[in-house]
């Protein structure tokens, strides 16, 4: 299970997709009767998409971004404003993607000059500015009153306003974006991203343009978050700035790290765990964050590769399919 982007036997690949599609299909069968559960499941799908985007930027290319909540917000506000003014969701979403893609390119520019925590601060600044725009430009965004009454889309006359139908819309986007992510990561672009993460000077020496590929990594990551935001607005039927504060970006970072940064399954596992843990820890009330922080810390110290790296260990040690290789 190490890494879906490495060569896999077709059987393994089919198995992965069967599990993935099976889980998506089973959720409404089991939880379809409960609106709250369906809401959480849909939200998980949306957060997986955002974390997948962050995985491009941080996991595969090694460029930290704390601007992902802002990108999500840009996508959400674009869809909200357009659909409230009578335009179709199917026109609004591509525009939201375009806006976030361009914003991602722009935020990628500083990554050519600054690295690591300096880059983190620049992207944090970007997130803050966008948040302030959402909250202060109330003539456009409605400020803290937000924008209520966002309609849910329909697809060629098919009404997608029910919770289950909207869940399947998000699921369809999730499957599509998973396929696109796999395709990108297996392409020349994916190789360039990973080379930059390993060592950007060596990447340049084999012919990787840092300008092109660092900006692309940011732009693709941002566009994924933009789509997620564009789906979040009609899910909640309401947007306001408090959905996209700067600390929300840290949650995406936590999801990615808990799941496994730079691993294809990381965002899936991370988003599911981070979203479901509160449901199980609800009894602990205020202690929740303490417990959550402790779990995160333990994970970071002992398994910095995230939960998916634990699966690796499991498959190697327990099933002995793929014994670790060391040389001397």
């Amino acid at each position: 299970m190490a890494n879906l982007t490495r060569k896999k036997r077709p059987v393994t690949r089919i198995l992965h997709w069967t599990i993935f599609l099976g889980v998506i299909g089973c959720v409404p069968v089991i939880f379809g009767g409960n609106a709250y559960y369906m809401y959480v499941a849909t939200l998980i799908g949306i957060y997986i998409i955002t974390s997948m985007g962050l995985n491009f930027t941080l996991g595969y290319t090694g460029q930290i971004s704390l601007g992902h909540a802002a990108f999500m917000g840009l996508g959400a506000y674009t869809v909200a404003l357009m659909t409230l003014n009578g335009y179709s969701f199917w026109l609004a979403l591509p525009l939201g993607v375009l806006i976030t893609f361009v914003a991602g390119l722009a935020l990628g520019l500083p990554s050519l000059r600054v690295k690591h925590h300096y880059l983190a601060l620049v992207t944090l600044g970007f997130g803050t500015v966008i948040y302030l725009l959402f909250s202060n430009e109330y003539e456009i965004t409605g400020g803290f009153s937000g924008l209520p009454g966002i309609p849910r889309p329909s697809f060629f006359g098919l009404d997608l306003s029910s919770d289950i139908a909207f869940y399947f819309l998000v699921a369809a986007f999730l499957v599509l974006l998973t396929g696109i992510a796999l395709w990108i990561l297996n392409s020349r672009w994916g190789r360039a991203f990973k080379a930059i993460r390993e060592n950007d000077m060596r990447a340049e020496m084999v012919g990787v343009s840092l300008l092109t590929y660092k900006l692309l990594a940011f732009a693709i990551g941002a566009a994924y978050a933009g789509i997620a935001g564009g789906l979040l607005a009609p899910l909640m039927k309401f947007v306001d700035p408090t959905s996209f504060p700067v600390h929300e970006s840290f949650w995406f970072l936590i999801m990615l790290i808990i799941g496994g940064s730079g691993r294809f399954e990381g965002p899936f596992v991370g988003a599911i765990v981070v979203m479901l843990l509160p449901q199980f820890l609800r009894g602990t009330q205020q202690l929740y964050f303490v417990i959550f922080a402790a779990i995160t810390l333990i994970l970071l110290i002992f398994w910095p590769g995230g939960l998916t790296s634990l699966l690796d260990v499991f498959f190697r040690r327990v099933l002995r399919r793929n014994p670790p290789q060391f040389t001397k």
């Binding site: 990973k194 080379a195 993460r197 390993e198 060592n199 000077m201 060596r202 990447a203 020496m205 084999v206």
Partner: peptide, 13 residues
Amino acid sequence: AMVPEGRGIFAKL
């Protein structure tokens, strides 16, 4: 082409 100093490979690939 360059063979970098200190075995400059992409270590995690």
